[in-house]
Simulated scan of single mutants.
Amino acid sequence: MTRRDALISVIEALHAEIDALKSNDVSALELATRTKVAGIDAVASFDGEPMTAEIRELAGEAHRLNETCRIYVNLMAANVRRRLQNLTGNPMAAYSPAGLAYA
């Protein structure tokens, strides 16, 4: 496997993560995450090699996709927090020490 192949594997796994997050498919999310971590480990094994323009571009794409995943997770967490606040009648932030006192 080359660094390019490893980055492509990471990108494919990130696409799978996004799809799993959109569909709330926990099993697919777990598989995509394991695949992504394995790809990242493979990319890291090429650490001493010089960066080419193609590798830099693939790494940038992986970074953008990872940021998209992060945004999806943050939105999902905010929705859960809002739902919990509605269920408990607690207007305080669910993750603050005062908010936890009501849990």
Score class of each variant (00 low, 15 high):
Ile11Tyr: 04
Pro97Phe: 12
Phe46Tyr: 14
Thr2Lys: 06
Val43Tyr: 06
Asp5Ala: 15
Met51Lys: 08
Ala32Ile: 04
Asn66Arg: 08
Gly99Glu: 02
Lys22Asn: 15
Asn79Gly: 15
Thr88Cys: 05
Ala98Leu: 14
Thr2Asn: 10
Leu29Tyr: 05
Leu87Lys: 04
Met1His: 10
Val26Thr: 14
Val73Met: 13
Asn74Trp: 02
Arg82Gly: 02
Gly99Cys: 11
Ala44Phe: 03
Pro50Tyr: 05
Asn24Arg: 08
Asn86Cys: 04
Asp19Ser: 12
Arg64Gln: 10
Gly48Ser: 13
Arg64Lys: 12
Cys69Asp: 05
His15Trp: 02
Ile40Gln: 09
Ala77Pro: 00
Ile8Phe: 04
Phe46Gln: 02
Leu100Ala: 13
Leu7Val: 11
Ala53Ile: 10
Asn86Met: 12
Leu100Asp: 07
Thr52Gly: 10
Ala42Lys: 05
Thr68Ile: 12
Asn66Ile: 05
Arg4Lys: 13
Tyr95Ser: 15
Ile55Trp: 03
Ala6Tyr: 02
Leu21Gly: 02
Ala6His: 03
Ala94Thr: 11
Ala59Lys: 01
Met92Phe: 02
Ile40Pro: 00
Ala42Tyr: 01
Ala62Ser: 11
Tyr95Leu: 13
Ile8Ser: 03
Ser96Thr: 14
Val80Tyr: 04
Ala101Thr: 12
Leu84His: 00
Cys69Ser: 13
Arg4Cys: 01
Ala42Phe: 04
Ala16Ile: 06
Val80Gly: 03
Ser23Cys: 04
Tyr72Met: 15
Leu7Ile: 11
Cys69Tyr: 01
Arg83His: 04
Ala59His: 03
Met51Gln: 14
Ala78Lys: 12
Glu61Ser: 09
Asp41His: 12
Glu30Cys: 08
Pro50Ala: 07
Thr88Tyr: 07
Glu17Arg: 07
Leu87Val: 03
Met92Asp: 07
Ala16Gly: 09
Glu30Ile: 08
Glu67Ala: 15
Ala20Arg: 00
Glu57Cys: 02
Thr35His: 04
Pro50Gly: 05
Ile55Ala: 09
Thr88Lys: 05
Ser23Tyr: 01
Glu67Phe: 04
Glu30Phe: 03
Asp5Ser: 13
Ala103Phe: 08
Asp25Arg: 02
Leu29Arg: 02
Asp5Trp: 01
Pro91Val: 10
Met51Arg: 09
Ser9Arg: 12
Ala98His: 09
Ala98Ser: 13
Gly60Val: 03
Pro91Asp: 06
Val43Ile: 10
Glu67Thr: 08
Arg64Asp: 09
Leu84Ser: 00
Ala38Gly: 11
Pro91Cys: 07
Ala13Ser: 10
Tyr72Pro: 01
Ala38Ser: 14
Met1Gln: 11
Asn86Thr: 06
Leu14Pro: 00
Ala101Gln: 13
Glu49Tyr: 05
Ala78Gln: 13
Leu7Trp: 12
Val37Leu: 15
